[in-house]
Structure formats: structure tokens, C-alpha cells
Write a protein that binds this DNA or RNA. Sequence first.
DNA 1: GATGAATGAGTCTTCATTCAT
DNA 2: CATGAATGAAGACTCATTCAT
Lengths: 204, 204, 204, 204
Amino acid sequence: MISKTVVNKVPKKDKKQALLDSALALFVDQGFHATSTASIAKKAGVATGTLFHHFASKDALLNHLFMAVKLEFAEDISQGILTRGQTGKDLKSDAEHLWQHAIDWALQNPIKQRFFLQYSMSSEVDATIREQAMNSVLHFVVVLIEKGQQQGIIADFPIPLMLANCHGQYLAAIRYFTDHPQWGDDVSQRQASFELFWRSMKVD
Amino acid sequence: MISKTVVNKVPKKDKKQALLDSALALFVDQGFHATSTASIAKKAGVATGTLFHHFASKDALLNHLFMAVKLEFAEDISQGILTRGQTGKDLKSDAEHLWQHAIDWALQNPIKQRFFLQYSMSSEVDATIREQAMNSVLHFVVVLIEKGQQQGIIADFPIPLMLANCHGQYLAAIRYFTDHPQWGDDVSQRQASFELFWRSMKVD
Amino acid sequence: MISKTVVNKVPKKDKKQALLDSALALFVDQGFHATSTASIAKKAGVATGTLFHHFASKDALLNHLFMAVKLEFAEDISQGILTRGQTGKDLKSDAEHLWQHAIDWALQNPIKQRFFLQYSMSSEVDATIREQAMNSVLHFVVVLIEKGQQQGIIADFPIPLMLANCHGQYLAAIRYFTDHPQWGDDVSQRQASFELFWRSMKVD
Amino acid sequence: MISKTVVNKVPKKDKKQALLDSALALFVDQGFHATSTASIAKKAGVATGTLFHHFASKDALLNHLFMAVKLEFAEDISQGILTRGQTGKDLKSDAEHLWQHAIDWALQNPIKQRFFLQYSMSSEVDATIREQAMNSVLHFVVVLIEKGQQQGIIADFPIPLMLANCHGQYLAAIRYFTDHPQWGDDVSQRQASFELFWRSMKVD
DNA sequence: GATGAATGAGTCTTCATTCAT
DNA sequence: CATGAATGAAGACTCATTCAT
């Protein structure tokens, strides 16, 4: 009786998290529409109704998932920035750290990375959610660009345009490295990918 | 009775084209899965069964459409290249023409442009079709890059990486200009978008 | 091949009618909500999808059914009026014919009668449909009351009130006779039911 | 800790009554099947499980509610009879009092009145409960009719038939007055509704 | 008594596809 | 070639009810 409480105790939030995990895997694997709510529940080891107890709808689940993954990414990146020493001294080196860290994250979280690729521009995710998530993530880049422009290191193009361009180059890079996994560890290729990015931003 | 045949006669291929047109509009507007074959047929003014006379399945229709739009784009771009005078003299000016022409096409074909954005990376289109279409379009760019590298004008990074990067920047640009239509006619912004692209490619 | 056409020929509208028939029986037997669309289709011998090919929704099916039954009733009653000889001479006898005919119809169409009882006031049927149907049926009664009031035979109360009262008495009568089937053929009871009705309407 | 018990103490039966109140409002508003037990609990401010502590099932709740409302009505009517002076002297005046009082009750308790209209004949309420409730209420009427027949004032038709007829007329009247609220205070209409009823019952 | 997370059978409805005409 | 009624498997979502706390 005493131990029963201990033994059967299931960590709270476990089911909700299990649902999110299953959904992530299945959405990436089969796409949103091809994944049934029943299959998500089954993979998570819960009843179909449980999904709808935690999320109002299949769409709500996707939106929630999207936000969660984006935040996780943002947190990881911001940790990386903080743990470095006196940042701001050498902007290019800061930028490179950011870039490589972001790509590392993608390579180390291949499912989440594919999730980004598939849903970052998909209309299946709510436009507002997408924008919100995007801003939270791209904030680092805005800060970096503004600082660089003040220092005369980064070209003086409109920030929104540069931001869009950064995002596009980042998506292209992670797609490239996941399509060709063997090159993800190739220092020269990794270096090249950053160079392409940096050249477009820096002043001549 | 006699005239009826004449009057009602619909030019051949009209129905097939009507189906493609309707499908394009609806797929862009509502997404692939949210668009029923019935609604496509209705918008095209034909019976539901007719769609399956012309296309083996809904998927086949999407693939066909994808290929058709990509080819149309490729053709338009290649026309643009041919109609220019002695190309090859000034590589940067060639590249700029290509870039601006490609963006113009997107701005002048907004539905098709959105179609690109939504389906270029979607798993709903067959991977082989996608790749095939991609190559046909990007071929111009390969040619350009190779020539530039030989001339020592374009940086000597691996071509597949540069290609992926180009594609990413292009998608970012057309998304930017369609999200902010008022800037599509702004020469300085258009110029800036090319500059970003060109800097990343050229040697320092 | 020749006979095939004849043999396999299924009368058009058969499936739609079969669905209506099945729905009538099941709705009366189990109630609207307790009847699944699947069971209706099954009883009608068609696929589940077929129901939705003919009716936009389960609700639409109920509304359609309600209207159809009401019209059938109205038509039967109006036939009864027309086939009688010089009507209008003796108003009381006209009224009695109408009353007994209406009760006969209910006794001879027990399922449809129960359908009336259950759905005439149910909120499951669209309010507009209900009113529309009601008016078409009660029109005879309005005509009768107005004529009677002009002749000084029928009491001069507000017509809508009298109409509501008639309807209430009719529903009570058919419920009474179907709850006690053995009295439906009892002339004195049938006579009594009319007398109750007529006394309330006539002038003293 | 001590005061907590006192402060939070909710008067017993409060929750049960709250559930009945919420159920009444929702059943009338949305119908029985369209009302979820969860919504009843929510409106009552209790947990979903609590409903099932007080009522064995959703059906049991409806039956309980039906009986309670009917009894409340019966009690109110019987109070009205008792508080009048020497009843029985003038039967018609007694009947009119009964009739007007019953209609007043309906007008003053619109939700309960709608509840009657919707569930008095609905198969969702247990047939036995319905009959039981009906008898308890109509008992006054039986007494009245029998007395009237003995006195030769009321027509000598079978009592069950007259009862059913009374009920039908009553339902019609309250529906009429709630559909047209402005006439509920119109003395002549109220008088007319009684006259219709009384004429059908009295001897010529 | 009270709670509310969990259940899973059951519901309506959609839709790509077929085929007799 | 064209039609559109028919199909039936599959899907998202609901909800009365249970039970561990």
C-alpha cells in the first residue's frame, strides 16, 4: 500500500509530453495530414480522447508543438551566446559562433530540424504563431545586425530584408547538411557555409 | 441539333487546362489536402469523373502541375537570357539580369510564386519530380557559377552548397517582396536584394 | 445485354426514398439522436456516403423528412375535401369530415402519426421548416374557421388562438387513440372526440 | 485550518441543487442530447465527477428534474385551490381559477414552462416517470370533471378522453401565450382561452 | 463527498476513386 | 471523352462514465 503510491506514480505532464513527442516524430515522418490523431495517441501510449483533453484540436497540437520546438531552439542558442566570454569584441567571430551553433543544433536534433524545414513556412501552422516564434528566434540576429551596422562592419541594407535573407540562407544550409550528412563534419564545408552568409552581410 | 455540336464544342484540352488552372488556384489558397477533387472539378466546370480521365490521381495532378509551372518559369527565364545581346561579357550584369528577371516573374505571377513557396519543399510533391524540376531551373545558375569561377570572379566553394544557398536566397527574396508588395517596385530594395545575393557569391 | 438494362434498371430516386423511409422508421423508433446515420444507410441498403450525397447533413435529412410527411398529410386531407360533394352547405358536417379524416389518416399511418407527435414541437426540426409545414397544413382549418365566423356558427375568438387550440386538441386526440388502439374503431369515442372539439369552436 | 472548514463550507445539497438548476437551463436551451454533463457541471461550478455522485446517470438526472418540476407545479396549483374560500360551490368559477392559475404559473416560470413543452411528450424521460408525474398533476382535473358530471354541468364523455383533451388544450394555450408574450396580459385573450376550454367540457 | 484526468466506443462527415450510362 | 451517383474506408472529435487521489 505504501509502496504502491511510489511505484505507480507517473510523473505528471508525462502524457502531454508523450503526445508532443509522438506528434513531432509522426508529423516529420508522414506530414501533418497523413498523421491521424489516433496514431499519435497510440504511439504515445494513451487513449485517443486524452489527446483532446490536452489539446483542443489537432491544429492546436501542431501550433503548440511548433512553439515549443522554436523556444527550445531559441533557448539553446541564447545559452550559447551567454556562455561565451566577452562577446561583442569581434563581431565576425560572434556571428560565426552563432551560425555554427545554430547548424550544430540542427545536426544534433535532426527530427526537430526537419520539423523546422517542413513547418516554418507551412500554412498548417497559424500565421500568428509562426511570426511570433520567428521573432523570438531571430531576435539575436537583429541585435547582431544593428550592432554591426553601427560599427560599420555590416552593410546598411534594410533590416527586414537582411533578416529574411539570413533566414533563407540558414534554412538552405541546414537542408544542405542534412541532405548530405557526411559533409556536416567537414570543417571546410562548414566554414564555407558561414563564409557565404557572412560575405552577404559584411561591408566590402 | 446540328448547330448544337458547333456551338457547344469546347476546344480540346480546354478541360484539362481548366482543371490545372483551378487546381493551381485552390492548392495555393487552401493547401493540397484541404482541396477536394470535387471542388477542383466544380471550379473548372467539369464533372468529378473528368478529372480522373486526365490525371491518374490527385497526386498525379499535383505533380503534373508542379512540373508545368516550373517549366513555364524556366522557359521564361531562358527567354530572358536569349533575348539579351552578347551575354557573358559582364558576368555581374548577367547575374543581375537573371536575378531581377526571376523576381519580376514571381511578382507578375503571384499565384504561381506562392505555389513555389508552398510546394518547392513540400513532401506532397514526389521527391523525384521535385528534384528534376529543380535541376531544370537551377541549370542556368550552375552554368553561371561555373563560368564565374573559371573567370575568378565567383568564389570557389562547392557548387552544390552554392546552389542550395542561391535557392534559399531566392525563396527568401520572393517571400519578402510578396509579403511587402509595396517594396517590389522600390529600386533600391530590389537592388539591395541583388547585392546581398551577389556579395555572397563573388570573390572579395 | 439488352435485357440487362431492363433487369438491372433501378427506379431513379429509389435510394433517396429508401433513405427517407429508413430514417422515418428509425427516428420514430429510437429518436433522432439515438439513430446513427450509419444505421439509416444500412437499413436503406446503401453506403453511408450515399446519405450525404442526397442530404447535406443528418439535420437536413430530418427537415426534408418532416416537410415530406407534412405535405403528404396535407395532400391527403385536401383530397378528402375535394372529393366530397357540395361542401360548404353544412359547416358542422364539413368540420366533422375533416376531423375524422385527419384522425383516420393518423390511425392508418401509425408511424407517420408518431413522427408528428414526436417532432411537431421538437427543436430538432428547424423552426422555419416547422412553421412553414404547420401553415400549409392548418390552412384548411383557417378557411373553415373564417367561413364559420362569417356565418355566425363559430365563436368569434382570435384566429391564431383558435388555431393553436385546434392543433392541441388534434394532437391530444391522435395520441389518445394510438395509446388506446382499441377505441379508435369505437364510433361513440370517435364521435365524442369530435364533439369536444366542435363544442369549443361553435357559438353557444 | 479551523476557519477554513467554516469559510469554505458550502450548505449541503447546494451542489445537487446547483446541478439541477444548471441542467434545467441547459436542457431547455440546447436540448437534452446537445447538453453535455461536463457543461452542466461547469455551469454549476462543480467538477464533472460530482454530477455522478448525486445522480446515477445523465438520464437519472433528467428524470429527477422532470419529477421535481412537475411536483413544484402541482404544489403551486394545489395551494391555489386550498387558499380559495368554499370551493365547489360554483364549478365553472373553480375551473376558471384553476385554468388561469395554471397559465399564470407557466408565464411566471418561463423556463420551467418550456421544459414542460419540450419534455412532457419526449421519449427521453422515462415513460413511467412521465405517467406518474402526469397523474399527480392531472388529479385536480379528474376530481373536477367527476364532480361536474355528477352535477350535470360537465359533458358525459369518457374521462380519459377528456383528460387527454384538457392536457392538449393546456399545452396549446401555454405555447400560444409564450410564443406571443404580449397577449399573456390581455384579459380578453386570457378569457378566450378559458372559454374555448370550458365550452368543450360543459354540457350544452 | 469532491475532484478532474483519463478512457475508448461511437458519431457525423469527408473524399478520392470507380463505373454504368 | 464525359458524366455524376455511388461507394466505404478513414478521420477528427465528443462525451458519459470511472477512479485514484
